[in-house]
Every structure is written in structure tokens, then in C-alpha cells.
Amino acid sequence: MIEVLNLRKTFHDRKKGDIPAVRDISFVCSPGHVFGLLGRNGAGKTTTLRMLATILAPTSGTARIDGFDVNDHAGDVRKRIGYLSGDTKLYDRLTGRELLEYFGQLTGMASSAISSRIAELKGSFGLGDFLDKRVGKMSTGMKQRLSLARVVLHDPPVLIFDEPTSGLDVLGAREVLKIVRDLKAKGRTIIFSTHIMTEAERICDEIAIIERGSILAQGTVESLQRENGGGSLEDVFVKTVGEVNGDA
């Protein structure tokens, strides 16, 4: 379960002063659901997800991940999440197996548990052919599968995906979405940010349209379409974002 309450993040710049990146956003995502954060580049999606992953501290407000507060129990939160960002890279000089073992150790797993989990993921993520190959020599698709395996290695109940299909071709992106759907089916709580409307339509149970750090609209794809007089999700997005920017 993810519960976000009045979460705010303001960055300070010596020249520009305070820059609000996220403004008092609130939402809830339940287990077995995918919550989509839909927004343009720079809308505040990544900052929101970084706060949920405890990489950044909120300026005010809070969020509870699987019952733990991100401000007070960051360590407990990190044990319960798997975080993947689209522009995240891996360690090129390690093999796939070494990389998984390393992150297994960092999440506090025992050696035997890491080995058995790698064996399990090897089959389900199709890592067999390249698990012992150095990451630097893997294709983009292989790296993405390995990244996903790294995220679920410690079997976290909450998964945070920040534009995970970024830079992938159609087949690669399709593969990622399939894995996200499988995780949803297993009852994981998933938050998924994207600026690709079709992706959001296909996998999100609920969507929040975020612009300039604020949530402008929130609901299921159908309810958003209904409230905005029909049309595709893209039409809804353009209309909602256009209104706030004054060009609708």
C-alpha cells in the first residue's frame, strides 16, 4: 500500500531562489493495483518517486509505504520497495550474476537466499543466456531485463517504476509492461510514471495527471475520459494540461 499525503518538495537555487517541484500532492495505491503518474518532462514525476523511494526527503507532507513513514522510517521503507528508473544504468564491469548478488547483499539477503532467487529469476526473466556475461557487453534489452530482475530480487511488496520503458524499442517496452502486469497479478503495489499515453492506458488502474508539481486530475482511465467529454487519454491529457497552461 502507498499512501501519499500533501507531499511537497522545494529545491533551493542560489540564483533562482525556491523552486517548487512537487506541490502538496496526495493519492493512494492499493496492493494489486498499478497507479500511473502521467506528466510531461519536468512535471514532478521523478521527484515524487524519488521521495517515495527515500532518495530525496520531502520538504513537507509525508508518504507511508507498506505502513512505514518515508520521513521517520526510511530504512524500513527501502527494505519494502523495488525502484527502477528508465535512465538508471548498471555496473558495466560486473557480470549479471555478480550484480544481482551485490544488490541482494545490499538488501540484506542471505547468500543461500540470493542464489536460489537468482536461479528462480533466471527462468522467469529469461536471464539464462547472459547471466554470466559482463553487463557492458549486454544489449539494451538484456540490461533492462536484468534491471527488472534486480528490482524484484528481494521480492518487495511495493514497486516504483520511473519511466521504465525509456529508451527501449517496441518489443523491449512490451516485455517490460508484461512483467509489470505479472507483478500486479501477484498482488504487488505498483506506481508507474510515464509520458506515453498508450502505456498508461494499457496497464494503469488509476492515473494522476501531474503538471508543474500538482495533480490536476485523478481517476480511472474511463472516469477521466467521462469527465472530459470522451476522447482518448491523450485528448484528456492535452486538455487538462492545456487548461492549466492557458492554451486549451
Binding site: R50, A53, T54, I55, G75, R78, K79, I81, Y83, L84, S85, T88, K89, L90, Y91, F103, L106, T107, G108, R150, I160
Partner: peptide, 9 residues
């Protein structure tokens, strides 16, 4: 690779 590292426990 920093974000990945910081999001571990």
C-alpha cells in the same frame, strides 16, 4: 547508478 544504490536498504 547512484539512485539504484540509494534506494537499497
Amino acid at each position: 547508478t547512484l539512485e539504484t544504490l540509494l534506494s537499497t536498504s
